[in-house]
Computed example of a mutant assay.
Amino acid sequence: MFANFFSPKRSQPTMEFNKEKPLGRGFSAQVFLGTFNGKKVAVKRIEKGFDTNLDEAAQKLEEETMKKLEHPNVLKLLHVQDDKDFKYLILELCIGTIANYVEGNYTGGMPSEIEGMIQMASGLQYIHSKHFVHRDIKPANVLISSPSVLKISDFGLSRTVTTTSGSFPMTSGPKGTRVYYSPEFLFTEGKTKEEKEQIRVNVSIDVFSLGCLFFNYLTKGGHPFANGGSPNEVFTPANIYKGEKVLDGKTGLPKNHYAYDIIDGMTENIPDKRWKLEKVLETLNAEAERPKTAESQ
């Protein structure tokens, strides 16, 4: 029924969404199925000034970040509208997430595993090339679009980085999801404000998170720092901090798997030793181009 839909500011391009069909929800935002000028879209409704002025700044940064991103493996922002209480980001409509796929709740079309990894790494490399760090790479933030295209989404925690080294200060402390934190992010927990202001990290934090995501994607739920099993909110961050990694556990990858060395390199505890996305993509593309007859050798 039309009564279930909400359409702010009729003078703007027509945006409608069904409040009874949420696609997802977060701390201060919900995503709904909707339409924009008659086309099916996802509508992210963000509560304005949810907590502090910092939240308003973060909301503005998400919008400004997405306006600057145009890549097949990055979720596209189509339009922005707002009213007194909410901001509305009109986004490409996707049909699932990597988290859904891993959990077995998504059975639609998917790229091959290696093509999926190439797409995710390509999207993240593009984000970094535009001088942004994502800060919350995880299975729920990689969306599945039809036909079989993966897109990095949710830029609510993103921020700008230096154009030379891709670094940024840890003034506001670590952000994101702890089981996907890099060790240098975990290191800043408990530091004073003054101490955090003296610490800089770089975009390799996203590479670490993506390496953990790759493992989760390939093993359908495992984590490199959970003894190959499912991540635990207490023990997994502790293992990350200590560098206790198991890739070839019971639910892990054999050492001769093409992605074993890639994931191992991406999840190095020392940032300077961590693989860069250029090397990740070079290795993945070389593997994808290998003759099928060689795969079994």
Rank of each mutant, 00 (worst) to 15 (best):
D261Y: 02
D206G: 11
S209K: 12
H223V: 01
R274A: 13
G222C: 02
S204I: 13
I270A: 07
T267R: 00
L253I: 06
N256P: 07
I270H: 07
L218R: 02
T236W: 02
V203A: 12
N239I: 06
N227Y: 11
S204M: 12
D248G: 05
P231A: 08
N216V: 07
T267W: 10
I262E: 01
N227D: 11
I262P: 00
N202W: 12
V207R: 00
D264K: 08
I262F: 00
P231K: 01
I240Q: 00
D264E: 14
T267H: 06
V207F: 04
V207Q: 00
P254F: 06
F235D: 04
P237Q: 07
Y241W: 09
T219I: 14
H223A: 03
K250Y: 07
N239R: 13
Y241P: 06
V234H: 01
G249D: 04
N202L: 11
G211P: 13
D248N: 14
G222P: 00
I240V: 12
S209H: 10
L213M: 14
E244P: 03
N227G: 14
P254T: 09
F225T: 02
Y258Q: 06
K220T: 03
P224C: 08
G265D: 08
G211D: 12
G228M: 03
K273Q: 15
R274G: 11
D272F: 10
E233I: 15
G249H: 10
V207N: 09
H257P: 11
G243D: 03
E244I: 15
G252A: 11
V207G: 01
G265I: 14
G228A: 10
G211C: 15
K273E: 15
D264R: 02
V207C: 10
L253H: 00
T219C: 08
F214Y: 15
M266G: 00
T219K: 05
V207H: 03
T219P: 05
I263M: 04
V234F: 12
P231Q: 04
E244N: 15
K245G: 06
G221A: 00
N227I: 07
D264Q: 00
F235C: 02
G228E: 06
G221V: 04
G265M: 06
F225C: 03
P224G: 06
H257C: 08
L247V: 09
A238P: 01
D264A: 13
D261C: 10
K273V: 10
P231V: 09
